[in-house]
Design a protein around this nucleic acid. Structure first.
Lengths: 235, 235
DNA sequence: ATATTTGTTAAGGTTAGGTTAAACGTACAA
DNA sequence: TTGTACGTTTAACCTAACCTTAACAAATAT
């Protein structure tokens, strides 16, 4: 099962309201990253894996709609919820065009927001069967799509991954910054745990390291006798 | 894109409002089936394939939430939009629990409803159940008409496609930019999955690649051991 | 110091896929 | 009937992809 909380990117320029909402969501077992404007929001989005984005519409530098479009380019499945002070129809329409999953007018009932988040997460399937359905990952400046088996660095052309490379990297990503036990990979991916499969896995670790070398923020560390750890610096 | 209208199941007990809304949606190129209550709504749902359901909450015999649950049992992906006269919080919460995709309070702006429908249908994209009806596709600079079995590049003369070529390309297009599993094509088109049908399919992939070579934005990629992916760059 | 684990590269074998051409089958026309 | 046209399958050959094993070097543990 997953003991890890759902991660929310909250982009809200009003610092007072932002902090309050962040704390409220944190109280309800969400991990919240707060960004003060669209720019910062996009930077933070690129550096981490989120389950939902909550975007304020009215923001300096970059409004919520523009941000939403940028986010959609990076991840076409992540749910986006807009917050707006205005009930203006044009805004609503623009929001849906920008790929909104939901829409809330300020002031809104915080309980309704919670309910919407729950509903969205459930619908996207990231709730219950999280691991088995999750196939899009952000690893530093890389984007891993383990369904289509490719790894993309920034705007470079995607590298195709072999099934073993793909599953191994996915497993490491699921345990990002944490131990991924050697035995886990062997039983899950190789379905056998012996000297040779273990050496085979080491070969794949070497391959992945070669791919990931492009980004100095990303590294696969060995924990002697235990397993490996996918480290992503600067969070 | 597709010339076939999206089909909506509208369940609304107020006959005046129901008819007006139905006509309004019909005017906007939806095929609408109107049901006067939950019972009738469910019967009609079972008898046809819809793209979206719009359910009134307050209805005699069977309310919208109950109906939504029954519908969900039959089809876990079909989008459901609730209409309610009340702004009551409990209703909203109950709605999301029942698997709502969206929510509208009466009176609502009909243009907003249209936008929501569009957004929902777009989001559900090509994996809606309306697949079987879809036969016109834009693939980069190509236009595929899988009913008339031709493929047209820009203003050039249309290329005639054989039945197998046509069905295979159509299946790829339905999964544009996503994995089209090898096995899916074999079972759907060849109705058999063995070494020879598989090789036959490869031959057709080669033929399609030859046709599609004209447009460098379009490409059929192989995902080793999984299937193929029709990639369209710059959309 | 010695044994064990890990890092890395390269060679080998196996399977899947890319492509072209010939064989096959069916429908239709002469 | 025989021929022709068309779509599809099978064959053949080749390349690419994938995974394992081997070999040796380096790090780590006992």
């Amino acid at each position: 099962m997953d003991t890890v909380n759902k991660k929310i990117l909250l982009v809200e320029d009003d610092p007072n309201f932002g902090i309050v909402l962040k704390d409220y969501l944190a109280m309800n077992d969400f991990d919240v990253v707060l960004a003060k404007n669209g720019m910062e929001g996009f930077e933070k989005f690129k550096k981490d894996n989120f389950d939902v984005c909550i975007l304020d519409v009215m923001m300096p530098y970059k409004d919520g709609f523009t941000l939403a479009k940028e986010i959609r380019e990076k991840n076409e499945h992540i749910p986006i919820v807009f917050l707006t002070a205005k009930t203006m129809k044009e805004d609503v329409l623009k929001g849906y065009k920008a790929g909104a999953d939901d829409y809330l007018n300020k002031p809104f009932d915080s309980e309704v927001l919670l309910m919407k988040l729950k509903a969205i997460l459930q619908r996207k399937g990231t709730n219950g069967l999280a691991d088995s359905k999750k196939f899009e990952f952000k690893i530093g400046n890389f984007q891993l799509n383990s369904k289509l088996r490719f790894l993309k660095f920034k705007e470079e052309e995607a590298i195709k991954l072999s099934p073993k490379e793909n599953e191994l990297l996915r497993l490491l990503a699921l345990h990002e910054n944490d131990l991924m036990p050697r035995e886990l990979a062997l039983t899950k991916i190789w379905r056998d745990d012996n000297y040779f499969t273990s050496r085979s896995m080491d070969v794949y670790i070497a391959k992945l390291r070669k791919y990931l070398k492009k980004d100095e923020l990303v590294e696969i560390l060995n924990i002697h006798g235990e397993g490996f750890r996918l480290v992503v610096k600067n969070d």
